[in-house]
Design a protein around this nucleic acid. Structure first.
Length: 433
RNA sequence: GCGGCUGUAGCUCAGUGGUAGAGCACUCGGUUGUGAUCCGAGCUGUCGCGGGUUCAAUCCCCGUCAGCCGCCCCA
């Protein structure tokens, strides 16, 4: 006898693309449902844009360092460049800009929208950094002018959204780029991107290390650096003297936002001038969020900021906006890694309906329907196997109740609580868990 | 994109220059309508892939791919 082996493709995960077992997925859905409810409670409306955009759209803001996955047909003629070049979106802000410009006449401004979709970046994956991940974005966009109140609404929404998840304490750190940029202007420093990018690393590398980098890479004098680092690490806003109008404006805005958020717990909100975000399209308020109870994970799990003109590349209108984005997959994956996400239920069913025998199937189905109509989630066992087997199935799937319909015409309904082992007579009309 | 480490069963891993093992998981059984424990039996592998050295390679050498970690960047 020869083993007639069929060729099987050994399944393996693709790095940076995660998938969960049913019990974990159930928790992920609960988290997403919660976030969605909070977003909607503030009046944000849902949109969904395609996974792909034209490459030209994705690059409209001149971002070249993002690793974009492109989309081509396997059968495409490699010499045929007439095909539209498509790429998977790497964030939800660029699609939002395109969407807003495209549907400008049909949208109501200020346009408050939320978007919870996957995005793709061709990066090297590691814990908290995937190549495919879900972001939960909220943004508000208005025409010409966007009131500063919205800058304060963002952290308020995010606080509620994150507070409902089991992630321990967290801190939303807020700053305003105008403050540091004003100082750089005052000091006559032009290469603001390099400087801000390094100031952003103060917490990670320490003040001294950043000092060295700024001297070496940006060619700043000790005096300049000390002024910059003093500002970035000074957390008492009232002590800061504005050196020009830009700084004054930034300080006023930041003070206003902090003032509006005074109802939140102290630890959850902090003005932190070292937060500047490496991205240069933010023009005012900026946000970052860290997990206080898990300091070993230092990256931000929720960031964003204000931009003066979202869709300038797509429409001849000035559309200022402010937005913030929960790095959902990052957060979920990291919390899983810390053992904080533990699935118990392997399915949604509350009740497993036992099938006593084939000729009792109609009766079991009817009982199940009755219970479903009363709002219970009921799964029917598929075959009239031994009761022990049916119970073992409920046990494995962690279904909390097992329902025994009558085994014969004179029988009674019984229900068994799988946690306590207790079993008692009942009726599908009035049973409650 | 750069650097370090690692690839053996579905999972966690052990092992040897003479083509492999444990635990867990999975399947079946321990007779009637009741799970978690226990006992018994069974199933599972191109030892990541390609080449080299050797009578002989899962083991040694080279390459390659993949994964993990750090950097870069960021959610």
């Amino acid at each position: 006898m020869s083993k007639n082996k069929k060729k099987i493709y050994k399944p393996k995960p693709v790095s940076g693309f995660s998938e969960w077992l049913p019990e974990i997925r159930m928790i992920e859905q609960q988290w997403l449902d919660h976030i969605r409810r909070v977003f909607e409670s503030y009046g944000f409306t849902s949109i969904e844009t395609p996974s792909v955009e034209e490459i030209d759209v994705l690059l409209a803001k001149g971002e070249t360092d993002k690793e974009i996955y492109t989309l081509t047909r396997l059968q495409a003629d490699p010499d045929d460049d007439k095909e539209a070049r498509l790429g998977l979106h790497f964030d939800q802000t660029v699609p939002l800009a395109r969407y807003t410009a495209q549907h400008f006449n049909d949208l109501v401004f200020p346009f408050k929208r939320y978007q919870m979709q996957r995005v793709w970046r061709g990066e090297r994956p590691q814990l908290g950094r995937s190549r495919e991940f879900v972001q939960c974005d909220i943004d508000v966009i208005n025409v010409d002018h966007l009131p500063l109140h919205f800058d304060a609404e963002m952290p308020a929404v995010i606080y509620e959204a994150l507070d409902g998840l089991d992630i321990g304490r967290f801190q939303i750190r807020i700053s305003n780029r105008k403050i540091l940029l004003g100082l750089l202007e005052h000091l006559g420093i032009d290469d603001t991107i390099a400087v801000t990018r390094n100031v952003d690393k103060i917490e990670k590398l320490g003040r001294d290390e950043v000092h060295l980098i700024l001297a070496k890479e940006c060619g700043l004098s000790d005096e300049q650096i000390i002024q910059i680092l003093d500002l970035a690490t000074d957390s008492v806003l009232a002590d800061i003297d504005p050196l020009n109008d830009q700084m004054r404006e930034g300080l006023d805005e930041l003070n206003f936002v902090m003032d509006q958020l005074s109802h939140l717990p102290d630890h959850a909100i902090k003005a932190d001038l070292s937060i500047v975000r490496g991205l240069d399209y933010y023009t005012g308020t900026v946000y970052e969020t860290v997990l206080l109870d898990h300091p070993e994970f230092t990256s931000s799990i929720c960031s964003g900021g204000r931009y003066d003109d979202l869709a300038g590349s797509f429409i001849n209108k000035r559309l200022p906006g402010v937005g913030i984005s929960i790095g959902f997959t990052r957060l979920f994956e990291v919390m899983q890694n810390f053992g904080k996400v533990q699935g118990h239920r392997k399915g949604p069913a509350d009740i497993l309906m036992v099938l006593p025998s084939e000729d009792r199937r109609a009766d079991a189905s009817e009982t199940a329907r009755l219970l479903r109509r009363r709002g219970f989630k009921v799964e029917q066992y598929h075959a009239p196997q031994k009761i022990g087997k049916q119970l073992a199935y409920a046990e494995k799937k962690a279904i909390p109740f097992v329902w025994f319909p009558p085994f014969d015409d004179d029988g009674k309904h019984e229900v068994k609580d799988m946690n306590t082992g207790e079993q008692s007579e009942t009726s599908p009309d009035n049973w409650t868990a």
